[in-house]
Write a protein that binds this DNA or RNA. Structure first.
Lengths: 165, 165
DNA sequence: AATGATATGTTATAATGTAACAATTTACAG
DNA sequence: CTGTAAATTGTTACATTATAACATATCATT
């Protein structure tokens, strides 16, 4: 079994989220600079708000916070920033929740596989080649060529499973 | 390779959709009778409209057709019927499209894996145990117990790939 | 026919997302 | 440093998707 890459883990004991978030922001800044694209104030702020927790964040929740800070914010403000961040691989949309999560690895372009806890709402991101390979093979049996996968798995994370006992 | 079950195939040569749809309706009626739930006129009609093609159908498109036939139809009419049909396993929602497709196998409760052609828009449904097992294993490595999977794969189907040449 | 459960009708509104065009800011060529 | 084009943001309006809440009707059973 080759890969079990975990890009964004579930919150473990002693998870220092402040640091986790700062690191994501730093990587984002470096990546944008390297690519010659602009992480403007709005985009940066939206990325921060997405990273406030490991739960998926809704566009209109982001908007509400932006409006607290700057009344000129409107839906397009948020959706444009989210579009940019998704294009640059810094944010993923969770389609089944209409919500957005920060990506742990913007440098390596990919679309991950998400594990979503039904209890705490946290999301972990995997990027597993075995899964990708198997799906490509199964789809290939039907003559189907894969462009892009949406894989969103609902269930119970280890922390919540423990607490249930 | 144990399973490569295809519940709803892509439209192949000579696909007689009229028959395909009638068969789905018949199965639905039998299933409902067996379960003691009611496939009312509205629900039956919504199921027919979902099965009009192999492309995912939008709730408000269904609504528009219902309103042609009966002016008393409103969003809840459609969403209630869709809820019922999803609960009974006769319809699946494609989360990434906000649209609905008929299920080829309502008797065996499951949530399939969908292949969505970017060209013709058609959707095929697989229900593959190998995929399910691998995902369960990978998630299990993180201590995650799976309840439900959303797997929606975008790409090019065999028919459209052939036509491209 | 009376009753309770299920289903539908109806109105209103919430939640999510985009179009279109104006104003501003930025990068950078001259 | 200034003019200009490109990129970004502001602004208004609207489109799309979905649900809440309560009234009415229909169904299954006594």
């Amino acid at each position: 079994m080759s890969e079990n890459r975990v890009l964004v883990p579930f919150k473990e004991n002693g998870h220092a989220h402040q640091r986790c978030m700062e690191s994501a922001l730093t990587v984002a800044e470096q990546t944008c600079r390297a690519r010659g694209v602009r992480l403007t104030n709005i985009r940066r702020r939206v990325l921060e708000l997405v990273w406030r927790s490991h739960e998926p964040v809704k566009a209109y929740d982001i908007l509400a916070r932006l409006q607290d800070e700057h009344s000129g914010s409107a839906p397009p403000t948020v959706y444009r920033a989210l579009d940019f961040l998704q294009t640059e691989g810094m944010v993923h949309k969770i389609e089944s929740l209409n919500a957005y999560v920060g990506c742990g690895d913007p440098n390596h372009m990919h679309i991950g596989q998400f594990l979503i806890c039904r209890d705490c709402g946290a999301v972990a991101e995997m990027d597993d080649d075995d899964v990708r390979i198997l799906l490509a093979e199964k789809a290939g049996n039907l003559g189907f060529q894969i462009d892009r996968e949406v894989i969103e798995i609902k269930g119970l994370c280890a922390v919540c499973a423990t607490e249930k006992r």
